[in-house]
Simulated assay, not measured.
Amino acid sequence: MSLLDLQNISYAYHRHRVVDGLSFHLMPGVIGCLLGPSGCGKTTVLRCIAGFEQVSGGTIRLDGKVVSDPHTHMPTEQRRVGMVFQDYALFPHLSVADNIAFGLRGDRAEQRHSRVSELLAMVDLAGEGGKFPHQLSGGQQQRVALARALAPRPRLLLLDEPFSNLDVDLRERLASDVRSILKAEGTTAILVTHDQHEAFAMADEVGIMHNGHIQQWDTPYNLYHKPSNRFVADFIGQGAFLPGEVLDAGHIRIELGVLSSTALAEEVGQCLNCRVSVLLRPDDVTHDDASGLKAEVVAKAFRGAEFLYTLKLPSGAQVLSLVPSHHNHAIGEQIGIRLDVDHVVAFHDTDPLGHPVQCSTVKQEAQVQ
């Protein structure tokens, strides 16, 4: 049985519906994430789960028990839900140890001391219990906030943009550390963030949110390689779309050649001669000096081990390519490329009524198969 179950929940601020018919569930021990742009409703969902807001429609269940629906609202303190806030929300007048022990006031002194010591070691702050929050770095303060939330052993932990105040490198590193801590504790958790690197470093399952809806709930791998719609494909990772034509159930022709796949979406593969937009990721376009396919370097970004090149094709369309950094090409230079596409991602081009658009002309034969 799932530990957390949201069924068709809705929530509105005044007359503005922020969350609309949203559903997902989390099994015990799983780390989930709501990922999306600002204003998509993800923090509101978290507040409804925590009990800070009451849903206007649908049902939220914890351990099978209804904690929120339009007629039921279990108080926050009865839900056994922990919360880690964006601004840490540590008590400045309490030591690190006393901050962590704050939720253990009903335990005996030796139990509190044992649990605090255990958590300090777990978050790599052993020996720092006597310090005060202002004496710690931002990353250390966030670890204290996590330890405080975990101290009473909540059945569910909620994390609201917990790393947004930290620098980029520390965010991803700390997200990975927090994941290890939650797994060690066996804690079920849900993270809210707009940063996909953070989400992928921490979560087992991720829901992409847009306008109060979940567009796709899936593993990070599937979100990247098998996006369910154009919004998810645009939001996750980097890439460029090229126009294409469906030749048959397993082949699509684009400017760079014919892509073959046995895993085309059924609705795409069965629409012969339809126009589609094909997503090419930077790792789908490989630099190859021996290739007869050429593209012009129009921009480059150095990333240490590799360059991210923006390449212009003969048609004027642009694609991205990740190239080892010892291939240092100049802007304006023509370089050889070839396709190395394992997952063909394509979406129909549609008319204003939503019908697939047919190709009206016969395109030249593809350059490569």
Rank of each mutant, 00 (worst) to 15 (best):
A249C: 12
L242C: 03
D248W: 06
S260P: 01
N273K: 11
L279Q: 11
S277W: 13
Q270K: 15
V246I: 08
G269V: 03
V258L: 15
E296V: 06
R275L: 06
V276F: 02
E296G: 01
V278F: 07
G269Y: 02
L242T: 01
E266H: 13
L264D: 14
L293E: 08
V268Q: 02
E245T: 14
L259V: 05
I252K: 14
A249T: 15
S260G: 04
L279H: 11
E296P: 03
V278C: 00
V246H: 01
V258Y: 09
R275M: 03
G292C: 06
V258F: 09
C271N: 03
V285D: 12
G292Q: 07
H251S: 09
A240M: 15
S260N: 01
V258T: 12
L280D: 13
E266Y: 11
E267W: 00
V258W: 12
I252G: 15
H287Q: 08
G257M: 15
V278G: 05
V298L: 08
T262D: 07
E296T: 06
R281V: 05
P282V: 04
D283H: 08
E267Q: 07
G250M: 00
E255G: 02
V298Y: 05
V285S: 14
L279A: 10
D289S: 15
F241Y: 15
L259Q: 00
V297S: 11
A295E: 06
T262P: 06
E266K: 12
R253N: 06
R275E: 07
R275D: 02
T286D: 09
K294Q: 14
I254D: 00
L242A: 02
L279R: 14
P282C: 07
I254G: 00
V276N: 05
S260Y: 01
Q270M: 11
P243D: 05
V268D: 00
D288A: 10
I254F: 01
D284G: 02
E296W: 03
H251P: 10
A290F: 08
L280E: 13
P243H: 04
V268P: 02
S261F: 07
G244A: 00
D283S: 05
L256Q: 11
C271P: 01
L272W: 10
S261Q: 06
G257A: 14
A265N: 09
L279D: 13
D289T: 13
L280G: 12
G244K: 01
L264N: 13
H251Y: 02
A265C: 06
V278Q: 00
A295I: 11
L272H: 12
S277R: 11
D248L: 12
D283K: 04
G292M: 07
G292H: 10
I254K: 02
L293N: 07
C271V: 03
N273L: 08
E267D: 11
A240P: 12
F241K: 13
G292S: 08
G269E: 03
